[in-house]
């Protein structure tokens, strides 16, 4: 009697196990199918970019060629390099965008530390303002910003000075890196609201004990921040650095507004299709080599970020689990 019962139990257990393995298999299959098919869409533009960038003029007239090219036209890259004015544009990207990215990483961490670790009266208002800076797109403030930058003035003081003495001290910071540096230094540059938010969420999660010990030992707030908080926040600094560098690298909108001559790479790339005809290449990006040149330029533009991603990929993917962006 007892034995039979045991058999019963093992039978039911086996059936349950069987059902579980079947459903597990089904989910695994669904998962792989879904991820692979959408993954194809993710990787597709990159593959397309690489293949098209190597197309020659002849291959455009052959409809049979989609992926496998008969010959590789490396000349596209040479032409793209000169059409982009690559060295100059690259220099501008580093000088303007990357420096301001770095400034932003530093200034945002300082602000976020203050907002995350200390209690003070105006903090609630500041948090609301922070959300506002995230929600309201840059585009809403960019036009007055641009006009203000053409005659840089703080609260109209220099304007009054001009009226009183006739000396105009207002400088035009447009087309200089300062139109990027100034907001970044104050932590209100490109998407810095999101970066401050990420920092705050992370700093809030850090154990307080170490910092309190440092306080008791007589370390000031700056010392506590630099020697206790920063060294234990490598993960969040990595995440924010990646975001900041990527966003600044890809930024063309601020550049289009502020920079007229010193164009960074993203802006040079955005203007490339309209520039190519003046250099003697065709208008039509779909049927002439101009399309290949544009794709070659795109690939050159993407490569530095791609290399960075491949190097930092493992750490970045892991950091997503640990940063706790959403708290």
């Amino acid at each position: 009697m007892f034995k039979l019962k045991k058999d019963d139990i093992t039978f039911t257990l086996n059936r349950l196990k069987h059902r579980r393995t079947v459903s597990a298999l089904a989910t695994a299959l669904f998962r792989i199918l879904m991820l692979t098919s959408i993954g194809y869409i993710v990787i597709y533009p990159l593959l397309y970019m690489i293949v098209t960038s190597l197309r020659s003029t002849e291959s455009y007239s052959d409809p049979g060629i989609i992926w496998l090219l008969k010959d590789y036209c490396w000349e596209n890259y040479v032409d793209a390099f000169s059409a982009l004015k690559f060295p100059e544009a690259f220099k501008n990207t580093i000088l303007v965008e990357m420096v301001s990215a770095f400034l932003e990483i530093v200034s945002c961490s300082i602000v976020a530390y203050g907002l995350a670790r200390f209690e003070f009266r105006s903090k609630k208002i500041m948090m609301v303002v922070l959300i506002l800076t995230i929600v309201i797109p840059t585009q809403m403030i960019i036009i007055p910003q641009m006009i203000n930058f053409s005659q840089l003035d703080f609260f109209g003081i220099l304007g009054l000075f001009n009226k009183a003495t006739g000396i105009d001290l207002r400088v035009n910071v447009l087309d200089t890196p300062f139109s990027f540096y100034l907001p970044s230094i104050f932590g209100i540059g490109l998407k810095s609201g999101i970066m401050i938010f990420i920092y705050i969420q992370f700093f809030k999660g850090l154990p307080k004990e170490l910092e309190e010990a440092a306080w008791i030992d007589g370390a000031g707030p700056v010392k506590t921040f630099l020697q206790i908080a920063v060294p234990s926040s490598g993960v969040v600094f990595l995440t924010v650095t990646i975001f900041s560098v990527v966003w600044h690298w890809n930024d063309y909108y601020l550049a289009a507004m502020f920079m007229t001559n010193n164009r960074p790479l993203a802006l040079a790339l955005a203007n490339l299709p309209s520039q190519l005809p003046t250099l003697g290449f065709g208008y039509n990006l779909m049927t002439t080599r101009a399309g290949s040149i544009v794709m070659a330029a795109c690939f050159m533009f993407v490569v530095p970020m791609l290399v960075m991603y491949i190097i930092l990929q493992g750490k970045f993917v892991k950091s997503i689990d640990r940063v706790g962006i959403t708290g």
């Binding site: 602000v111 907002l115 009266r121 960019i142 007055p144 006009i147």
Partner: peptide, 27 residues
């Protein structure tokens, strides 16, 4: 501590006024 916290956030407050609220109202 409150004072220090405010000092950490002060540059940002100035920046927000100059580079966010002023242009926002202007626009």
């Amino acid at each position: 501590k409150a004072k220090y916290g405010f000092r950490f956030a002060l540059p940002w407050c100035i920046g927000v006024v100059i580079f966010f609220f002023v242009p926002l109202i202007q626009s």
